[in-house]
Design a protein around this nucleic acid. Sequence first.
DNA 1: CCACCTTACTTTGTGCACAATCACGATGGA
DNA 2: TCCATCGTGATTGTGCACAAAGTAAGGTGG
Lengths: 225, 225
Amino acid sequence: MTGDDDVPNAGEQAADRVHATLRAEILDGVRTAGSRLREEEIAAAQGTSRTPVREAIRRLAADGLAEIAPRRGAVVVAWDADDLDELFDLRVVLEGHAAARAAVSGRADLDRLRALCDRMEALRTPPDYPAITRLNLEFHREVHRAGGRRVLPELVARVVEAPLVQSTIRRYTPDRLDRSFAQHRDLVAAIEAGDADWARAVMTAHLRAAREVVRDAVTNAHPSP
Amino acid sequence: MTGDDDVPNAGEQAADRVHATLRAEILDGVRTAGSRLREEEIAAAQGTSRTPVREAIRRLAADGLAEIAPRRGAVVVAWDADDLDELFDLRVVLEGHAAARAAVSGRADLDRLRALCDRMEALRTPPDYPAITRLNLEFHREVHRAGGRRVLPELVARVVEAPLVQSTIRRYTPDRLDRSFAQHRDLVAAIEAGDADWARAVMTAHLRAAREVVRDAVTNAHPSP
DNA sequence: CCACCTTACTTTGTGCACAATCACGATGGA
DNA sequence: TCCATCGTGATTGTGCACAAAGTAAGGTGG
């Protein structure tokens, strides 16, 4: 036993830890869009030198969570309304494809998907949004894994694990949450039936609804005049 | 004037140069799949220290061109037949989407696309494969740029700029080359007409043909028994 | 003869220091 | 008052050195 936290194959490398920490801080909104990522500050906070911090920041840039200007440092990426539209278009395309492939690949773990549905529905009243968000991500990731071998899961992660995308669930009303859970069940049924078109349609509907929620959230909350 | 080679905004950073060099070597087949990327060796060859080399290797891993095992170093990724199928599926999905969006976005530079068609066709007899490959990549990139704002071009690059994908054109017969050029012209016409479905269909047909060529090349050339 | 352990050697991961560049403010002149 | 130029501080890019982990070879015991 090595005593890992949650990741099985954690290399316990400093760069990995810093990367995970910064990633979580960006996704949780602790580090807001446009804020700078100064290497020395992060290094001091994490108790390491700048070397692993540099590597972590470069990885964040590769993940699409930060932007690096040469000799000027890195900042957390800022998304405008058009960027979010593009992001959700790509989610529909890629996750729809993943769902369709998962339906015919025979590699979907249906028991696991159903168990995740059960656990999400159990957290409905009162809604435990952070936990539901985590389980929802796990559910989608299982579909991605079943729909692609190597490249697809990485590509989808690039568009799913974005700041405003992950905070979508938090804005769901209980009614909206029920419909989302029902779509999950439908998706499992479509995959179990081996119906690629059905699976793609359910996923598309699922994501279109999420897109509306995010769009409302962005237009209602005026960012910075 | 700064005297750059070909990239306009070259930061003249060592890490960028090493990254570009290694990338070209992998895509050109100089570094074969599975071969190791030793930091010190590369540093010596490039005339720098290990620090920029490390950064370049990590970037290659983010590009999907290398795989890093902690404490064990990096190797050039190896693709099997199933991986290539997944890759071309994703090309169809993403480039088809890009073509469809380019047809309705109004951001396609039709003159530039036509000029690239002209230049490719001028290199037909005898076929200058390296030059055609470059121009073909430029052509596709223009479509990607017109079809997406930020994320799409990066995602598509991830599946287009793979070793075996870029060497596809080299395996085209003159006949196959003519059909490919005709599809490029069709795509320009579809985009000019603003017909998203047409553009997607042309791109899908274009890539399906390429997939066949790559599939034949892989099955005919037995890699390692 | 084979399996296991020990021992060097190789390679990566991290810390640290210096140089180059950028941002910002002060100072001087028109 | 406004603009240009010149410091000064802050931050990143790179080189270098040491520590840790992995690998492979050789030796020893069964």
